[in-house]
């Protein structure tokens, strides 16, 4: 009788623990999902801004048609990309073409002074920053999820309910990877 009671208590405790772990994992997964949707929103915003940018820049930099074409091509690739891996590569390529466009635009003072261009530049800067920050957040959350899914004893529950590891959204630029150390 006593043994039966002990077993019953143990089962209840185990169930409660599993529920807690399960809920924690669900929350993490939702955070990752939310992080990804934030990145997605910003990437779309960038795609929308680019035609305007190219249109404005065209008037001033007729000699740089190749740079402009590259940007347009990269944008199309990014829109067409479907898998996570392709998307990542295409977006990184788009970032690099945009960077070279802004580098070239430094040589055109009239373009830099153009009010609309300045506005677009600010819009793109903020979108680029948002993408970077959203990626930062996403990767942090992915990291937490991955740790939670693999660490013992959580992994028992994770395997039972098919929680899976996620891939990070990688950067192409090695210099950006460096995270400053935080000391209190």
């Amino acid at each position: 009788m006593v043994i039966l009671g002990v077993i019953l208590v143990l089962i209840v405790v185990a169930a409660l623990w599993m529920a807690g772990v399960y809920n924690g994992l669900v929350r993490l997964r939702e955070n990752v999902k939310n992080g990804w949707s934030q990145i997605d929103v910003q990437l779309k915003r960038r795609h929308d801004l680019i035609p305007n940018l190219v249109e404005t820049a065209k008037g001033y930099m007729a000699h740089e048609s190749k740079t402009l074409e590259n940007v347009i091509k990269a944008r199309q690739q990014a829109i067409d990309a479907s898998s996570f891996k392709d998307k990542q590569a295409a977006e990184n390529f788009l970032s690099s073409t945009l960077r070279s466009l802004f580098a070239v635009s430094e040589n055109y003072p009239n373009l830099k002074a153009d009010q609309q261009m300045r506005q677009l530049h600010e819009e793109l800067t903020t979108t680029e920053n948002k993408i970077a920050f959203a990626r930062q957040y996403f990767n942090d959350e992915v990291n937490r999820l991955n740790v939670a899914v693999q660490a013992f004893p959580n992994n028992v529950v994770a395997n039972m309910f098919k929680f899976e590891k996620r891939d990070f959204f990688e950067l192409e630029d090695a210099s950006e990877k460096k995270v400053p150390e935080v000391k209190f």
């Binding site: 939310n34 992080g35 934030q38 903020t126 920053n129 948002k130 920050f133 959203a134 930062q136 957040y137």
Partner: peptide, 10 residues
């Protein structure tokens, strides 16, 4: 402010 808000997860 919007950028930083994104960095904090919204």
């Amino acid at each position: 402010v919007e950028e930083v808000s994104v960095a904090t997860g919204g």
